[in-house]
């Protein structure tokens, strides 16, 4: 399989703050890769540098294809309220002839199961349906890489499961290469063919894990599968979840040493 995305020694600093510190990884064509990391670890910066919204301080991002698409977390802002659902899906296709535009939009809406809502305004739909419109828009653009930034973090749990399965189905049917950025460990294991685990700020690659689950996944059986459970705990351990006390203990120790040295010197 050929590589669709190659990231080499990518680093980014805002002023004094180092958000990403030297990341290297690849995404192969047709693969679904999840990037998981603690909140505020520089995941958004990573996504912004890959998508070209921000020029990285150092390193290279090379995409083997002409363009990529992004599905943002905040669907209510990323969709344009003055356009209909169809208008939103056609938004990136303005350079194409009208008939082609129509065809692609109708097709993409069909894929996400919203063929009937083409004439509605996005705000007339539920949150989950709005995010489906955003996914349809990205698919209609026929991107070499589909980037998703916490795509299901703003919908309720039920809708979230539906959208996860929708994503898995769509990418299987259309052989789309996907990179999902998330802070949800379960989601990363459930969705991914591979998981990239990032450490806290600055973001560094801690582990690159293959997900040995079958391509067909199921919200009930997969999530209780032994492989799933094991991998989830592994990622959680890597992310230090459940051991928040560790840092406090160290802080305590440091503070104690400091106060001690003060008493000694005085």
């Amino acid at each position: 399989m050929s590589n669709m995305l190659e990231v080499a020694d990518l680093g980014h600093t805002y002023g004094d703050h180092e958000a990403i510190g030297g990341l290297s990884f690849t995404v192969r064509a047709g693969e679904l890769v999840c990037v998981v990391g603690p909140s505020g670890c520089g995941k958004s910066t990573l996504l912004r540098t890959i998508s070209g919204l921000v020029a990285p301080s150092r390193g290279d991002v090379s995409l083997h294809g002409s363009h990529l698409a992004v599905v943002f977390q905040d669907y209510s802002r990323s969709l344009f309220p003055w356009l209909t659902v169809q208008g939103n899906v056609e938004f990136p296709l303005r350079s194409l002839p009208r008939a082609e535009r129509r065809k692609r939009a109708a097709e993409a809406l069909e894929w996400v199961g919203l063929a009937g809502a083409a004439r509605k305004r996005p705000w007339q739909l539920s949150g989950g349906m709005q995010q489906r419109v955003a996914i349809a828009r990205a698919l209609a653009y026929r991107p070499a890489l589909l980037l998703m930034d916490e795509p299901f973090a703003s919908v309720d749990a039920q809708t979230r499961f539906e959208l996860e399965d929708l994503l898995l189905r769509v990418r299987r049917e259309h052989d789309t290469t996907v990179l999902v950025v998330t802070h949800d460990i379960d989601e990363s294991v459930y969705l991914g063919d591979r998981i990239l685990v990032l450490s806290g700020s600055p973001a560094r690659l801690v582990a690159d894990l293959e997900v040995p689950l079958p391509a067909e996944r199921n919200q009930v059986t997969t999530r209780t599968d032994e492989v799933f459970v094991e991998l989830r705990s592994k990622v959680a351990r890597l992310l230090n979840v459940g051991k928040p006390a560790a840092m406090d203990v160290e802080k305590w120790a440091a503070a104690e040493r400091e106060s001690l040295s003060e008493t000694v010197s005085s």
Partner: peptide
């Protein structure tokens, strides 16, 4: 808003 600016930039609209 920023998300609309980003969306427009990502899709490289004219």
């Amino acid at each position: 808003d920023v998300t609309k600016v980003d969306t427009s930039a990502v899709f490289q609209i004219p």
